[in-house]
Design a protein around this nucleic acid. Structure first.
Ligand code: FES
Ligand code: FES
Lengths: 154, 154
DNA sequence: CTTAAACCGTACCAAATTCGTACGGTTTCA
DNA sequence: TGAAACCGTACGAATTTGGTACGGTTTAAG
């Protein structure tokens, strides 16, 4: 299915909400209520984002979380990294130099690795700000996409 | 981690081997030995690929599997589809019109959906042939991907 | 016509991962 | 001093993944 995990999806949803008023300080409880997500889950996610330095936390009463940087400077790739670790389509990519036991018989890993790189760069190019802006439904760039891919190949 | 599952990786490895002599008929046992993969697993994968009409099977003694189409006409997207079902980065994308319960409060799902489409098209642009050629020169379908994701989202 | 090589299909199991919960602690403001 | 908020670890149920088992069917060769 090639999917990101659910917490990552939640994380982007929460962050995109925070991006609308970037200087506000949001409590976990408020975010949870606003997004209709279970409070403990929201807390857990927020803590992970703090550890990854995408958010800063303010302790004590009237505390909460706020963005560590402007929304334009937080990429979706960074969010994925924070929640689920480095982007690695295959086991062998993650292994790094400790090559997989089959690498001697495997012609494809370098090609997967390349696809992986492209995905990574693509996700780095999408910021939280892009993500939080509620799309213009008829977007001209998207319509021509199919053809552009096709013609790029031959 | 954003990963494809292991069987899909195996599948591409097996298929790329078959693509080198496309008209040959390969037995599951031979492929398993050649790739150093457990035989039952290879069988299981091959059967899934037959069901998805990427391979044809020949029963009986001297039977085996061969590519249903030229390697140029089998995309990596098709392989992923065969093994793990449709490409769907998030739950909500898979759900289709039966929208997720949070969709009313969720600003990001349409943006994920758009990224999903771009990935899908990109993977459709990479053929088994590309994949089986070790260290293919810059693949044009991939090169421009980053830009495309970017322009699809804003 | 018999045998063996090969595919077919279902069902099962163990291990890993995911998703979410629980709970006791710490910091800060009012 | 107390309430509001964050902090951290640890746990557990449910699902998914990766792989096995086994009995059946088809076909070529001898
Ligand atoms: S399976 Fe590890 S290198 Fe391809
Ligand atoms: S979480 Fe379902 S629409 Fe975003």
């Amino acid at each position: 299915m090639l999917r990101i995990n659910r917490e990552t999806d939640y994380a982007t949803a929460i962050l995109s909400l925070m991006a609308q008023e970037p200087d506000e300080c949001y409590s976990a409880a408020w975010l949870s209520a606003r997004r209709c997500l279970p409070a403990p889950v929201v807390s857990k996610i927020l803590k992970q984002l703090v550890r990854a330095q995408l958010l800063v936390s303010h302790r004590g009463a009237k505390g909460g979380y706020s963005l560590a940087r402007p929304a334009e400077e937080i990429s979706i790739a960074a969010v994925i990294n924070a929640i689920e670790g480095p982007i690695a389509l295959t086991d062998c990519i993650e292994g790094g130099n400790s090559a997989c036991q089959y690498s001697a018989h495997c012609a494809v890993s370098s090609n997967w690795s390349r696809i992986n790189d492209v995905f990574q760069h693509a996700l780095e190019a999408v910021s939280l700000k892009d993500m939080s802006e509620p799309l213009a439904a008829e977007h001209p760039g998207l319509r021509a996409l199919g053809e552009r891919v096709r013609s790029a190949v031959n």
